[in-house]
Write a protein that binds this DNA or RNA. Sequence first.
DNA 1: CGTGTTTTTTTTCAAATGATAAAAAATCAC
DNA 2: GTGATTTTTTATCATTTGAAAAAAAACACG
Lengths: 187, 187
Amino acid sequence: MENIDQFYPQLSGITPEAKADLGKAIKTFTAKKGQFLLKKGTVCQHLYFINQGLCKTFFLKGDKPFIMRFFTEDAIFTVLDSFVNQLPSTYSIYALEPTTYTCLSSAALLSLCQKHHCIETFYRKLVSNASINMMKRISELLEDNASERYADFVKEHRELLQRISLGDLASYLGITQVSLSRLRAAR
Amino acid sequence: MENIDQFYPQLSGITPEAKADLGKAIKTFTAKKGQFLLKKGTVCQHLYFINQGLCKTFFLKGDKPFIMRFFTEDAIFTVLDSFVNQLPSTYSIYALEPTTYTCLSSAALLSLCQKHHCIETFYRKLVSNASINMMKRISELLEDNASERYADFVKEHRELLQRISLGDLASYLGITQVSLSRLRAAR
DNA sequence: CGTGTTTTTTTTCAAATGATAAAAAATCAC
DNA sequence: GTGATTTTTTATCATTTGAAAAAAAACACG
Protein backbone atom coordinates (compact mmCIF):
# COMPACT_ATOMS: atom_id res chain seq x y z
CA MET A 1 0.00 0.00 0.00
CA GLU A 2 1.26 3.37 -1.04
CA ASN A 3 1.52 6.51 0.97
CA ILE A 4 -1.71 8.04 -0.06
CA ASP A 5 -1.05 11.50 1.33
CA GLN A 6 1.22 12.38 -1.55
CA PHE A 7 -1.52 11.51 -3.98
CA TYR A 8 -3.98 14.11 -2.96
CA PRO A 9 -2.71 17.32 -1.54
CA GLN A 10 -5.46 18.71 -3.75
CA LEU A 11 -8.14 16.50 -2.25
CA SER A 12 -10.24 17.47 0.65
CA GLY A 13 -13.29 15.87 2.14
CA ILE A 14 -12.13 12.32 1.63
CA THR A 15 -13.37 9.92 4.25
CA PRO A 16 -10.89 7.69 6.09
CA GLU A 17 -12.42 4.59 4.52
CA ALA A 18 -12.11 6.00 1.04
CA LYS A 19 -8.58 7.03 1.81
CA ALA A 20 -7.71 3.51 2.88
CA ASP A 21 -9.25 1.97 -0.24
CA LEU A 22 -7.50 4.49 -2.44
CA GLY A 23 -4.21 3.65 -0.80
CA LYS A 24 -4.69 0.00 -1.70
CA ALA A 25 -5.42 0.81 -5.33
CA ILE A 26 -2.42 2.96 -6.24
CA LYS A 27 1.06 1.98 -7.24
CA THR A 28 4.24 4.01 -7.79
CA PHE A 29 6.68 3.67 -10.70
CA THR A 30 9.68 5.43 -12.11
CA ALA A 31 10.55 6.35 -15.67
CA LYS A 32 13.93 7.38 -17.00
CA LYS A 33 14.28 10.46 -19.11
CA GLY A 34 13.11 9.59 -22.59
CA GLN A 35 10.78 6.78 -21.60
CA PHE A 36 7.11 6.62 -22.50
CA LEU A 37 4.50 6.36 -19.77
CA LEU A 38 1.95 5.79 -22.52
CA LYS A 39 2.40 5.09 -26.20
CA LYS A 40 -0.13 6.26 -28.74
CA GLY A 41 -2.33 3.45 -30.00
CA THR A 42 -2.68 1.90 -26.56
CA VAL A 43 -5.52 2.59 -24.16
CA CYS A 44 -4.70 4.98 -21.34
CA GLN A 45 -5.56 2.85 -18.33
CA HIS A 46 -4.39 5.17 -15.57
CA LEU A 47 -4.72 8.37 -13.76
CA TYR A 48 -1.18 9.64 -13.16
CA PHE A 49 0.17 11.60 -10.26
CA ILE A 50 3.65 13.06 -10.60
CA ASN A 51 5.72 12.82 -7.45
CA GLN A 52 8.88 14.12 -9.05
CA GLY A 53 9.88 14.92 -12.59
CA LEU A 54 8.41 16.32 -15.78
CA CYS A 55 6.31 14.80 -18.56
CA LYS A 56 4.63 15.93 -21.73
CA THR A 57 1.50 14.67 -23.47
CA PHE A 58 1.89 15.03 -27.20
CA PHE A 59 0.70 13.85 -30.58
CA LEU A 60 2.14 13.87 -34.07
CA LYS A 61 0.79 15.31 -37.27
CA GLY A 62 2.96 13.64 -39.85
CA ASP A 63 6.34 13.95 -38.16
CA LYS A 64 5.54 17.24 -36.51
CA PRO A 65 4.95 16.99 -32.76
CA PHE A 66 2.41 19.05 -30.84
CA ILE A 67 2.34 19.17 -27.07
CA MET A 68 -0.99 19.24 -25.30
CA ARG A 69 0.42 19.92 -21.84
CA PHE A 70 3.39 19.64 -19.55
CA PHE A 71 2.94 17.97 -16.17
CA THR A 72 5.24 18.37 -13.23
CA GLU A 73 5.33 17.82 -9.48
CA ASP A 74 1.89 17.25 -7.87
CA ALA A 75 0.02 17.25 -11.17
CA ILE A 76 -2.75 14.70 -11.58
CA PHE A 77 -3.63 13.91 -15.17
CA THR A 78 -4.53 11.34 -17.78
CA VAL A 79 -5.35 11.22 -21.48
CA LEU A 80 -8.99 11.82 -20.85
CA ASP A 81 -10.68 10.64 -24.03
CA SER A 82 -8.78 7.37 -24.07
CA PHE A 83 -9.18 6.92 -20.32
CA VAL A 84 -12.92 7.60 -20.29
CA ASN A 85 -13.90 5.80 -23.46
CA GLN A 86 -11.26 3.07 -23.23
CA LEU A 87 -10.13 3.76 -26.76
CA PRO A 88 -6.60 3.76 -28.16
CA SER A 89 -4.95 7.06 -27.39
CA THR A 90 -3.82 9.44 -30.11
CA TYR A 91 -1.51 11.01 -27.53
CA SER A 92 1.64 9.70 -25.92
CA ILE A 93 3.00 10.50 -22.48
CA TYR A 94 6.75 10.97 -22.39
CA ALA A 95 9.18 11.65 -19.53
CA LEU A 96 11.28 14.74 -20.18
CA GLU A 97 13.12 14.15 -16.90
CA PRO A 98 13.59 11.14 -14.64
CA THR A 99 10.09 10.84 -13.23
CA THR A 100 8.47 9.15 -10.25
CA TYR A 101 4.75 8.73 -10.68
CA THR A 102 1.83 7.07 -8.97
CA CYS A 103 -0.93 5.30 -10.91
CA LEU A 104 -4.57 4.62 -10.28
CA SER A 105 -6.28 2.44 -12.87
CA SER A 106 -9.50 3.39 -14.59
CA ALA A 107 -11.21 0.25 -13.32
CA ALA A 108 -10.12 0.95 -9.75
CA LEU A 109 -11.21 4.57 -9.96
CA LEU A 110 -14.66 3.66 -11.26
CA SER A 111 -15.16 1.08 -8.57
CA LEU A 112 -13.95 3.55 -5.93
CA CYS A 113 -16.40 6.07 -7.34
CA GLN A 114 -19.25 3.64 -6.89
CA LYS A 115 -18.25 2.75 -3.39
CA HIS A 116 -17.34 6.22 -2.13
CA HIS A 117 -19.32 9.23 -3.14
CA CYS A 118 -16.43 11.44 -2.03
CA ILE A 119 -14.15 9.85 -4.61
CA GLU A 120 -16.65 10.61 -7.32
CA THR A 121 -16.64 14.20 -6.09
CA PHE A 122 -12.87 14.26 -6.24
CA TYR A 123 -12.93 12.90 -9.79
CA ARG A 124 -15.57 15.45 -10.80
CA LYS A 125 -13.49 18.31 -9.42
CA LEU A 126 -10.39 16.98 -11.08
CA VAL A 127 -12.04 16.93 -14.48
CA SER A 128 -13.61 20.34 -13.87
CA ASN A 129 -10.20 21.84 -13.25
CA ALA A 130 -8.83 20.18 -16.36
CA SER A 131 -11.68 21.69 -18.34
CA ILE A 132 -11.07 25.14 -16.94
CA ASN A 133 -7.40 24.93 -17.85
CA MET A 134 -8.31 23.86 -21.36
CA MET A 135 -10.76 26.74 -21.76
CA LYS A 136 -7.94 29.10 -20.93
CA ARG A 137 -5.66 27.42 -23.43
CA ILE A 138 -8.30 27.64 -26.17
CA SER A 139 -8.78 31.33 -25.45
CA GLU A 140 -5.06 31.95 -25.72
CA LEU A 141 -4.77 30.02 -28.96
CA LEU A 142 -7.68 31.98 -30.42
CA GLU A 143 -6.86 35.49 -29.37
CA ASP A 144 -3.07 35.63 -29.21
CA ASN A 145 -0.45 35.38 -31.91
CA ALA A 146 2.66 33.32 -31.34
CA SER A 147 4.62 36.16 -29.83
CA GLU A 148 1.92 36.90 -27.25
CA ARG A 149 1.53 33.23 -26.43
CA TYR A 150 5.26 33.00 -25.82
CA ALA A 151 5.21 36.05 -23.57
CA ASP A 152 2.26 34.56 -21.68
CA PHE A 153 4.03 31.27 -21.18
CA VAL A 154 7.14 32.99 -19.86
CA LYS A 155 5.05 35.00 -17.44
CA GLU A 156 3.00 32.06 -16.18
CA HIS A 157 5.56 29.28 -16.21
CA ARG A 158 8.90 30.95 -15.77
CA GLU A 159 10.08 28.06 -13.59
CA LEU A 160 9.39 25.56 -16.39
CA LEU A 161 11.40 27.52 -18.94
CA GLN A 162 14.65 26.21 -17.50
CA ARG A 163 13.43 22.63 -17.72
CA ILE A 164 12.06 22.35 -21.24
CA SER A 165 13.77 22.71 -24.59
CA LEU A 166 13.01 25.43 -27.10
CA GLY A 167 11.70 22.77 -29.44
CA ASP A 168 9.24 21.45 -26.88
CA LEU A 169 8.05 24.92 -26.05
CA ALA A 170 7.50 25.59 -29.76
CA SER A 171 5.49 22.36 -30.03
CA TYR A 172 3.37 23.54 -27.12
CA LEU A 173 2.80 26.96 -28.67
CA GLY A 174 1.95 25.42 -32.03
CA ILE A 175 4.79 26.97 -34.01
CA THR A 176 8.12 25.75 -35.38
CA GLN A 177 11.19 25.99 -33.25
CA VAL A 178 12.78 28.22 -35.85
CA SER A 179 9.90 30.65 -35.44
CA LEU A 180 10.26 30.56 -31.68
CA SER A 181 13.97 31.21 -31.90
CA ARG A 182 13.16 34.21 -34.08
CA LEU A 183 10.58 35.47 -31.59
CA ARG A 184 12.99 35.14 -28.75
CA ALA A 185 15.66 37.07 -30.64
CA ALA A 186 13.26 39.89 -31.39
CA ARG A 187 13.37 41.22 -27.84
CA MET B 1 -42.14 21.30 -12.10
CA GLU B 2 -40.63 20.96 -15.50
CA ASN B 3 -40.71 18.02 -17.80
CA ILE B 4 -37.44 16.50 -16.81
CA ASP B 5 -37.19 14.02 -19.65
CA GLN B 6 -36.15 16.71 -22.09
CA PHE B 7 -33.33 17.68 -19.79
CA TYR B 8 -31.42 14.48 -19.89
CA PRO B 9 -31.65 12.38 -22.98
CA GLN B 10 -27.94 11.98 -22.34
CA LEU B 11 -28.40 10.82 -18.76
CA SER B 12 -28.73 7.24 -17.80
CA GLY B 13 -28.72 5.59 -14.43
CA ILE B 14 -30.66 8.31 -12.68
CA THR B 15 -32.84 7.07 -9.88
CA PRO B 16 -36.54 8.00 -9.80
CA GLU B 17 -35.99 10.03 -6.61
CA ALA B 18 -33.15 11.99 -8.16
CA LYS B 19 -35.23 12.51 -11.24
CA ALA B 20 -38.08 13.92 -9.19
CA ASP B 21 -35.77 16.27 -7.28
CA LEU B 22 -34.12 17.39 -10.48
CA GLY B 23 -37.51 18.12 -11.98
CA LYS B 24 -38.30 20.42 -9.06
CA ALA B 25 -35.04 22.32 -9.46
CA ILE B 26 -35.16 23.25 -13.13
CA LYS B 27 -36.92 26.08 -14.88
CA THR B 28 -37.44 26.90 -18.55
CA PHE B 29 -37.02 30.31 -20.20
CA THR B 30 -36.98 31.82 -23.63
CA ALA B 31 -34.64 34.33 -25.19
CA LYS B 32 -35.21 36.33 -28.33
CA LYS B 33 -32.58 36.45 -31.01
CA GLY B 34 -29.93 38.89 -29.89
CA GLN B 35 -30.54 38.53 -26.16
CA PHE B 36 -27.89 37.60 -23.64
CA LEU B 37 -28.37 34.54 -21.45
CA LEU B 38 -25.30 35.67 -19.54
CA LYS B 39 -23.36 38.91 -19.65
CA LYS B 40 -19.65 39.03 -19.00
CA GLY B 41 -18.81 40.36 -15.58
CA THR B 42 -21.66 38.49 -13.91
CA VAL B 43 -21.35 35.09 -12.27
CA CYS B 44 -22.65 32.19 -14.34
CA GLN B 45 -25.17 30.68 -11.96
CA HIS B 46 -26.67 28.04 -14.19
CA LEU B 47 -26.25 24.93 -16.15
CA TYR B 48 -28.11 25.45 -19.42
CA PHE B 49 -29.96 22.96 -21.53
CA ILE B 50 -31.07 24.06 -24.99
CA ASN B 51 -34.51 22.83 -25.94
CA GLN B 52 -34.66 24.77 -29.15
CA GLY B 53 -32.45 27.41 -30.72
CA LEU B 54 -28.79 28.33 -31.02
CA CYS B 55 -26.39 30.18 -28.73
CA LYS B 56 -22.75 31.15 -28.68
CA THR B 57 -20.34 31.62 -25.79
CA PHE B 58 -17.86 34.32 -26.65
CA PHE B 59 -15.42 36.86 -25.28
CA LEU B 60 -13.87 40.04 -26.57
CA LYS B 61 -10.25 41.00 -26.98
CA GLY B 62 -10.50 44.73 -27.45
CA ASP B 63 -13.45 44.87 -29.83
CA LYS B 64 -12.61 41.63 -31.55
CA PRO B 65 -14.93 38.77 -30.64
CA PHE B 66 -13.85 35.14 -30.23
CA ILE B 67 -16.32 32.32 -29.96
CA MET B 68 -15.59 29.48 -27.59
CA ARG B 69 -18.44 27.27 -28.74
CA PHE B 70 -21.84 27.10 -30.36
CA PHE B 71 -24.64 25.28 -28.55
CA THR B 72 -27.77 23.96 -30.14
CA GLU B 73 -30.64 21.58 -29.48
CA ASP B 74 -30.01 19.12 -26.61
CA ALA B 75 -26.70 20.68 -25.63
CA ILE B 76 -25.98 21.01 -21.92
CA PHE B 77 -23.38 23.62 -21.06
CA THR B 78 -22.28 26.43 -18.79
CA VAL B 79 -19.33 28.80 -18.45
CA LEU B 80 -17.41 26.38 -16.37
CA ASP B 81 -14.82 28.53 -14.64
CA SER B 82 -17.37 31.09 -13.55
CA PHE B 83 -19.88 28.40 -12.63
CA VAL B 84 -17.46 26.33 -10.58
CA ASN B 85 -15.57 29.12 -8.87
CA GLN B 86 -18.47 31.54 -8.66
CA LEU B 87 -16.40 34.29 -10.21
CA PRO B 88 -17.46 36.92 -12.76
CA SER B 89 -17.44 35.42 -16.21
CA THR B 90 -15.16 36.69 -18.94
CA TYR B 91 -17.52 35.06 -21.44
CA SER B 92 -21.02 36.00 -22.48
CA ILE B 93 -23.78 33.71 -23.69
CA TYR B 94 -25.79 35.12 -26.56
CA ALA B 95 -28.81 33.81 -28.46
CA LEU B 96 -28.19 33.65 -32.20
CA GLU B 97 -31.74 32.42 -32.73
CA PRO B 98 -34.91 32.52 -30.65
CA THR B 99 -34.01 30.04 -27.95
CA THR B 100 -35.85 28.00 -25.37
CA TYR B 101 -33.61 26.83 -22.58
CA THR B 102 -33.86 25.10 -19.24
CA CYS B 103 -31.76 26.14 -16.25
CA LEU B 104 -30.41 24.37 -13.22
CA SER B 105 -28.67 26.59 -10.69
CA SER B 106 -25.22 25.88 -9.35
CA ALA B 107 -26.54 25.78 -5.79
CA ALA B 108 -29.27 23.33 -6.73
CA LEU B 109 -26.85 21.14 -8.65
CA LEU B 110 -24.42 20.97 -5.76
CA SER B 111 -27.14 20.10 -3.31
CA LEU B 112 -28.50 17.47 -5.70
CA CYS B 113 -24.98 16.10 -5.99
CA GLN B 114 -24.77 15.71 -2.24
CA LYS B 115 -28.13 14.07 -1.97
CA HIS B 116 -27.92 11.80 -5.02
CA HIS B 117 -24.71 10.08 -5.95
CA CYS B 118 -26.12 9.46 -9.44
CA ILE B 119 -26.39 13.20 -10.05
CA GLU B 120 -22.76 13.66 -9.14
CA THR B 121 -21.96 10.91 -11.64
CA PHE B 122 -24.00 12.70 -14.26
CA TYR B 123 -22.18 15.95 -13.53
CA ARG B 124 -18.82 14.20 -13.68
CA LYS B 125 -19.64 12.66 -17.06
CA LEU B 126 -20.91 15.97 -18.35
CA VAL B 127 -17.67 17.72 -17.47
CA SER B 128 -15.63 14.83 -18.84
CA ASN B 129 -17.32 15.16 -22.19
CA ALA B 130 -16.77 18.89 -22.18
CA SER B 131 -13.09 18.26 -21.51
CA ILE B 132 -12.82 15.76 -24.30
CA ASN B 133 -14.40 18.21 -26.73
CA MET B 134 -11.98 20.88 -25.64
CA MET B 135 -8.98 18.59 -26.10
CA LYS B 136 -10.09 18.08 -29.66
CA ARG B 137 -10.47 21.80 -30.19
CA ILE B 138 -6.99 22.48 -28.80
CA SER B 139 -5.52 19.84 -31.09
CA GLU B 140 -7.19 21.40 -34.10
CA LEU B 141 -6.03 24.89 -33.19
CA LEU B 142 -2.48 23.62 -32.76
CA GLU B 143 -2.07 21.42 -35.77
CA ASP B 144 -4.30 22.94 -38.43
CA ASN B 145 -4.08 26.19 -40.29
CA ALA B 146 -7.20 28.27 -40.84
CA SER B 147 -8.06 26.60 -44.12
CA GLU B 148 -7.93 23.12 -42.59
CA ARG B 149 -9.92 24.24 -39.57
CA TYR B 150 -12.58 25.62 -41.88
CA ALA B 151 -12.73 22.38 -43.87
CA ASP B 152 -12.98 20.44 -40.61
CA PHE B 153 -15.83 22.58 -39.39
CA VAL B 154 -17.74 22.16 -42.63
CA LYS B 155 -17.28 18.42 -42.45
CA GLU B 156 -18.29 18.07 -38.80
CA HIS B 157 -21.01 20.70 -38.54
CA ARG B 158 -22.46 21.05 -41.99
CA GLU B 159 -25.94 21.50 -40.51
CA LEU B 160 -24.75 24.48 -38.46
CA LEU B 161 -23.29 26.25 -41.48
CA GLN B 162 -26.73 27.37 -42.59
CA ARG B 163 -27.50 28.81 -39.18
CA ILE B 164 -24.43 30.89 -38.35
CA SER B 165 -22.98 33.92 -40.07
CA LEU B 166 -19.61 34.02 -41.74
CA GLY B 167 -18.45 36.48 -39.11
CA ASP B 168 -19.38 34.16 -36.27
CA LEU B 169 -17.69 31.22 -37.92
CA ALA B 170 -14.56 33.33 -38.36
CA SER B 171 -14.67 34.28 -34.66
CA TYR B 172 -14.89 30.59 -33.83
CA LEU B 173 -11.96 29.70 -36.07
CA GLY B 174 -9.88 32.55 -34.68
CA ILE B 175 -9.46 34.49 -37.92
CA THR B 176 -10.97 37.64 -39.40
CA GLN B 177 -14.09 37.36 -41.46
CA VAL B 178 -12.25 38.83 -44.40
CA SER B 179 -9.77 35.96 -44.19
CA LEU B 180 -12.57 33.43 -44.02
CA SER B 181 -14.28 34.95 -47.03
CA ARG B 182 -10.98 34.61 -48.87
CA LEU B 183 -10.62 30.97 -47.81
CA ARG B 184 -14.11 30.18 -48.93
CA ALA B 185 -13.49 31.78 -52.33
CA ALA B 186 -10.33 29.73 -52.81
CA ARG B 187 -12.26 26.55 -53.49
C1' DC C 1 40.33 17.04 -24.41
C1' DG C 2 38.22 16.01 -28.74
C1' DT C 3 34.61 14.32 -31.53
C1' DG C 4 30.06 13.38 -32.69
C1' DT C 5 25.24 14.60 -31.60
C1' DT C 6 21.61 17.57 -30.46
C1' DT C 7 19.80 22.11 -29.89
C1' DT C 8 19.47 26.80 -31.12
C1' DT C 9 20.22 30.60 -34.21
C1' DT C 10 20.51 32.89 -38.62
C1' DT C 11 19.35 33.62 -43.42
C1' DT C 12 16.50 33.60 -47.49
C1' DC C 13 12.35 33.06 -49.80
C1' DA C 14 7.39 31.63 -50.06
C1' DA C 15 2.82 31.28 -48.22
C1' DA C 16 -0.72 32.57 -44.95
C1' DT C 17 -3.06 35.94 -42.44
C1' DG C 18 -4.13 40.71 -40.83
C1' DA C 19 -5.49 45.60 -41.61
C1' DT C 20 -7.86 48.78 -44.19
C1' DA C 21 -10.87 50.45 -47.57
C1' DA C 22 -14.34 49.95 -50.78
C1' DA C 23 -17.70 47.50 -53.63
C1' DA C 24 -21.25 44.17 -54.05
C1' DA C 25 -24.78 41.38 -52.29
C1' DA C 26 -28.06 40.06 -49.06
C1' DT C 27 -31.20 41.08 -45.47
C1' DC C 28 -34.20 43.91 -42.76
C1' DA C 29 -37.56 47.46 -41.42
C1' DC C 30 -41.36 49.79 -42.50
C1' DG D 1 -41.32 47.59 -52.77
C1' DT D 2 -37.81 50.78 -51.40
C1' DG D 3 -34.32 52.64 -48.75
C1' DA D 4 -31.32 51.61 -44.91
C1' DT D 5 -28.52 48.41 -42.66
C1' DT D 6 -25.85 44.42 -42.31
C1' DT D 7 -23.14 40.85 -44.30
C1' DT D 8 -20.00 39.17 -47.58
C1' DT D 9 -16.63 39.76 -51.13
C1' DT D 10 -12.73 41.82 -53.45
C1' DA D 11 -8.43 44.29 -53.64
C1' DT D 12 -4.03 46.09 -51.94
C1' DC D 13 -0.29 46.18 -48.93
C1' DA D 14 2.12 44.97 -44.45
C1' DT D 15 3.25 41.53 -41.11
C1' DT D 16 3.64 36.95 -39.39
C1' DT D 17 4.86 32.36 -39.86
C1' DG D 18 6.62 28.31 -42.41
C1' DA D 19 10.17 25.68 -45.14
C1' DA D 20 14.72 24.62 -46.00
C1' DA D 21 19.45 24.88 -45.45
C1' DA D 22 23.36 26.07 -43.04
C1' DA D 23 26.07 28.00 -39.18
C1' DA D 24 26.83 28.36 -34.35
C1' DA D 25 26.41 26.83 -29.76
C1' DA D 26 25.66 23.55 -26.22
C1' DC D 27 25.96 18.95 -24.70
C1' DA D 28 27.38 13.97 -24.10
C1' DC D 29 30.74 11.00 -23.38
C1' DG D 30 34.72 8.01 -24.50
